[in-house]
Design a protein around this nucleic acid. Structure first.
Lengths: 190, 190
DNA sequence: CGATTTTTTGAATCATATCAACGTACGTGG
DNA sequence: CCACGTACGTTGATATGATTCAAAAAATCG
């Protein structure tokens, strides 16, 4: 919970009172490895802040293969914002890759929170702005670099993260096959 | 200008008075084909709403090739939000693909506008939320479909748009070479 | 420990890139 | 309004990065 307050205060400042109001709208929760916060076909009901742990957002492509759109780690919000906003069935799965702790902001109380603390609207504006630019950067990397280069770049950008997840998930996130990643790593050894 | 007010009112409602305040913060402007709103190395100074026309946001990759990250058309905001937020030099070019009319929200007055009309914070939260989900969808298409499929999908999604831009720009946006696009189109004829 | 999941390896194959040459269109100055 | 030059589009031959499939090896889990 403190991690969330710290994160918010990086963008806007909250009074003691506001912090307490905020806490009354947020529920913290443990999530076991492989548990789902959302499954394809369900309507997404909340926005999740990852206090600790790692999640993956993925979908099934037409060949029945799991395709990971992105990971969420400590101090990131994660959700299917399209399903959340429009209250339509999601195309995605949102699953814990490792045991995690999250703060849950339910859709049903979100508007009330914004009314009581309008600053939160600003906070989320900045969060989405950042998420959007990160997503654009990602497209840039996909178009600019080869698979091999993307792997090395990812390793440099998130040192140690590779050890937290199975290789086939990283391959999926980077947009190539597990076999290809295996060959890239074999090459590196030499 | 009216197009912008209409767009805003799709997300939040503004009183007559607020509309007038807003208009005092916005400058409308004509932009000629091939003119730049932003060049690589410059600090981005404003957020632009496209009233009419088409822009492209692109960068130079390491081989000196223009890589288009995305297009902006009527009723979209476009800018380099990373440069705008952090006031750092941009890596991107933002250029009019056809003659355009835009509404300019300068960075220097943006905060004052948000103070006077806090609803605008909410408006932009929703705009960025939408932009973020669109960007995620784009990554999904890139990973799921082949180049050929992406071309056909784009054509279906934005009928008529293909005619507005040179083919090499579309190829760049879709992430392959102009030669490849030419071959895909030749195949379709049969 | 055995059972399942994940990773590795190699060979064949496929989608797309690259390069070079040629054809077409288009806008700019005379 | 025509002619020219430059920008854009096409085509074919060859090259390459990445996939597919199958099978074996290694790691992980109950």
């Amino acid at each position: 919970m403190q991690a969330l307050l710290n994160h918010i205060q990086k963008f806007v400042s909250l009074s003691e009172e506001e912090q307490e109001i905020l806490q009354s709208y947020i529920v913290c929760q443990e999530v076991n490895k492989k548990d789902y916060l959302l499954r394809q076909g369900q309507v997404c009901m909340a926005n999740y802040f990852i206090l600790k742990g790692c999640f993956r957002l993925y979908y099934m492509n037409d060949n029945g293969i799991e395709q990971i759109l992105h990971f969420g780690i400590d101090n990131w919000w994660i959700s299917d914002y399209d399903s959340l906003e429009k209250e339509t069935p999601s195309e995605f799965f949102l699953q814990a890759v490792e045991h995690a702790r999250i703060a849950v902001l339910k859709k049903s109380v979100q508007e009330e929170l914004f009314t009581k603390i309008p600053k939160m609207e600003r906070y989320f504006r900045l969060v989405f702005q950042k998420a959007y630019t990160a997503s654009q950067q990602r497209i840039k990397y996909i178009y600019t670099f080869s698979g091999e280069e993307r792997y090395h770049h990812f390793n440099k950008s998130f040192p140690g993260f590779v050890q937290r997840i199975p290789q086939y998930m990283l391959a999926s996130y980077l947009g190539f096959t597990p076999e290809f990643l295996s060959k890239v790593r074999a090459k590196k050894e030499k």
